[in-house]
C-alpha cells in the first residue's frame, strides 16, 4: 500500500499539484464550488420534502438533481486532483472514508426519498420526512468530515515514514 502511495507521489501529476503556484488553489476553488452545488442543492430538496416551500411542486425539484450532479462532477474531478497531490495524507486517514460514507449515504437516501414521494398527490409524511432529515444531516456530516481532513491526517507524504 505504502509502495503504491510512494509511487503516486512521484508521478508528474502529483508533483505538479504540489509544486505549481496555482494548481492546488485552483483545485480547491473548484472543489468548493462543486460541494456548494452538490450539498446546497441537496439541502434545498430535503427542506422541500420536510415541508418548506410547499407552494412549489415537489416533483419539479427533480430539476435540481442535474445541478447537484454538475457539482458532484466538479467536486470529484478536483478531488481526484487534490488526492493526487497528497495521496498518503488522505488514504491513511479514516475520516476520508467517513466523508464518502456520509456523502454517498446522503445521496442514496435522497434518491430513495425522491422515488417514494415525488410525483405523488400527497405531501410526504412520517418516515419519508425522517429520511429527508437524515439525508440533510448526512450532507452536513460530509462537509464536516471534509473540513476535518486538514486536522486529522497523521502523515502528509510517505517520505515521512521509514519503510
Amino acid at each position: 500500500m505504502m509502495d503504491v502511495l510512494a509511487w503516486l507521489e512521484q508521478t508528474r501529476l502529483s508533483v505538479f499539484v504540489r509544486e505549481d503556484f496555482y494548481a492546488y488553489f485552483v483545485l480547491l476553488i473548484f472543489h468548493a464550488w462543486g460541494m456548494a452545488f452538490l450539498v446546497g442543492g441537496g439541502i434545498v430538496v430535503n427542506l422541500r420534502v420536510l415541508g418548506i416551500a410547499k407552494g412549489a411542486e415537489l416533483d419539479k425539484f427533480r430539476m435540481i438533481f442535474p445541478w447537484m450532479k454538475f457539482g458532484a462532477v466538479l467536486a470529484i474531478i478536483s478531488g481526484i486532483g487534490l488526492l493526487f497531490g497528497y495521496p498518503a495524507k488522505a488514504l491513511t486517514n479514516w475520516v476520508f472514508a467517513l466523508k464518502f460514507i456520509y456523502l454517498i449515504a446522503a445521496a442514496l437516501l435522497l434518491q430513495h426519498v425522491a422515488r417514494v414521494s415525488f410525483g405523488k398527490k400527497m405531501e410526504p409524511v412520517g418516515m419519508v420526512k425522517l429520511q429527508a432529515l437524515a439525508s440533510l444531516l448526512l450532507w452536513i456530516a460530509g462537509v464536516a468530515a471534509g473540513k476535518m481532513l486538514l486536522y486529522t491526517n497523521s502523515i502528509l507524504m510517505t517520505t515521512e515514514l521509514d519503510f
Binding site: 450539498v39 439541502i43 462537509v143 473540513k147
Partner: peptide
Amino acid sequence: IVHFSGVCLLFGAVGM
C-alpha cells in the same frame, strides 16, 4: 465546519 455548512445553506437557498 459551521462556516462551510453556512455557505452550503446560503448557496443552496439563494443559488437555486
